[in-house]
């Protein structure tokens, strides 16, 4: 019973590393999380990446900047207009809460999103943009989501 209570409270004693992981898995319904992560993969992971990866090899920096704008500010389009990547991420956070925050992959995803969104600050400038770096950072979100999905599935 004591062990169950500890798990429910999210706390674990030293030497119970396995229990710590299991406790995290009990804070959410894996199916629900996988659904949410599936949507995030499509809405954010895929569409934040595509405008850059779909550029032709010789695209000039102006095209890169336009693609970056589409990627970050017009990430998803729908009947209610366009939705920026930052809003998609905020909506996801609101749905998930802190239920996944104890998983190691969660940190990886948070860091990837942070790095990608940081490129917003470059949208207003007129300097050439480092396409490879941007593409790497925007593409990292998709990989991080996939990593988290696998971890959720494994713990489920």
């Amino acid at each position: 019973m004591a062990r169950k209570r500890r798990a429910q409270s999210g706390k674990a004693t030293a030497g119970e590393s396995g229990t710590k992981e299991r406790s995290a898995s009990r804070r959410y319904r894996p199916d629900e999380m996988l659904d949410l992560l599936g949507d995030l993969q499509h809405d954010l992971g895929k569409y934040v990446r595509l405008p850059l990866t779909m550029l032709p090899p010789g695209a000039d920096w102006d095209e890169v900047r336009t693609a970056l704008r589409h990627a970050l500010l017009e990430t998803r389009s729908g009947p209610d207009g366009t939705v920026p990547a930052r809003v998609l991420w905020t909506l996801f956070l609101a749905r998930v809460g802190n239920r996944l925050s104890s998983l190691p992959s969660w940190r990886v995803l948070e860091a990837a999103v942070e790095r990608a969104l940081a490129w917003e600050s470059e949208l207003g400038g007129d300097e050439p943009l480092p396409r490879d770096d941007i593409e790497r950072d925007l593409s990292a979100i998709s990989g991080a989501i996939q990593g988290l999905r696998l971890e959720v599935a494994a713990h489920g």
Binding site: Y47, L50, P51, L55, H70, R76, T82
Partner: peptide, 14 residues
């Protein structure tokens, strides 16, 4: 497609 990305890609780059 409910989104614009692919239509933009075809229009601009293909």
């Amino acid at each position: 497609d409910d989104g614009l990305t692919y239509a933009r890609v075809v229009a601009r780059h293909l």
